[in-house]
């Protein structure tokens, strides 16, 4: 028995459903419907992020710190904060960024870029040193190659630990880029590549399931709120 269709009367549901179908039409080929959805998507998302950028970054981190009284415009009951002269630094860097609009002054625009790159590099160095370097080593050597429990040798855990060690070391060897991968060294690197590929395979399967869940979500949206079948 075919379920009865009860089309939604909600304009928002119709817009969502039609745009979904327009995007799906790309599976057939590029067509005017897809182009329409594409332009709507790009326009709406660009505008959305611009507005978000203003209200989540520029307004609280710059405007309210330099002109605290301006807070009354957006939240009349909120207490007025203190003037923060430190905000003049990002304000100046932001203005320097705009210098790129004038060819003769465009070199000034390199300073804020350099500042952003430098601070991120410094911040990331400590963060990655801790998470990708120290933590990996600590986790690998934390358990020896012969773990025991109640005086019994846990050979399965032992084998797993050995595989982790061999995989980690051979993976590191694969990523040594200033040496040709030949001979015994090359064989270790190839083992590292094999470990990486096995890991990618497992990760791929898991991520594909996530994508299928997204697709199911879109179909539920179409068949439920729009067509009223589900």
């Amino acid at each position: 028995m075919i379920a009865a269709i009860h089309l939604s009367g909600d304009v928002q549901v119709w817009i969502g459903a039609l745009l979904t179908l327009m995007v799906f039409s790309f599976l057939w080929r590029d067509n005017p419907f897809y182009k329409f959805a594409e332009h709507v998507f790009v326009g709406v998302s660009a505008a959305y992020w611009m507005v978000m950028g203003f209200w989540t970054t520029l307004w609280p981190a710059l405007v309210l710190k330099l002109f605290p009284a301006a807070g009354r415009w957006s939240s009349p009951d909120a207490p007025v904060g203190a003037w923060d002269p430190v905000a003049l630094i990002p304000a100046a860097l932001g203005l320097l960024m705009l210098a790129r609009l004038w060819p003769r002054l465009s070199w000034l625009g390199k300073w804020p870029t350099a500042f952003a790159l430098g601070t991120t590099a410094g911040y990331s160095l400590v963060r990655y040193l801790r998470s990708d370097f120290l933590y990996q080593i600590e986790a690998t050597i934390g358990t020896g190659l012969a773990p025991t429990a109640a005086g019994r040798w846990l050979w399965q855990e032992s084998l797993a630990q050995l595989l982790v060690l061999a995989g980690t070391v051979s993976g590191l060897v694969y990523f040594v880029n200033t040496r040709e991968q030949r001979g015994a060294y090359g064989r270790v690197a190839r083992w590292g590549l094999l470990v990486l590929m096995i890991t990618f395979g497992a990760s791929f399967g898991s991520a594909v399931m996530g994508r299928v869940a997204l697709l199911v979500g879109r179909f539920q949206e179409l068949l439920g709120p729009w067509l009223g079948i589900l």
Binding site: F133, I137, T140, I141, G142, T143, G144, L145, A146, P147, T148, Q161, L165, T168, V169, L172, V173, F175, V176, N177, T178, R179
Partner: peptide
């Protein structure tokens, strides 16, 4: 810089092997 990073990776690999051996000997 690439060479320096590679030296650090090899040092990390050596530390991993040495650390695991030491931990195993301590356990055994």
């Amino acid at each position: 810089s690439l060479r320096g990073q590679d030296l650090c990776k090899l040092a990390a690999a050596a530390c991993l092997v040495a650390g695991s051996l030491v931990a195993t000997l301590a356990d055994v």
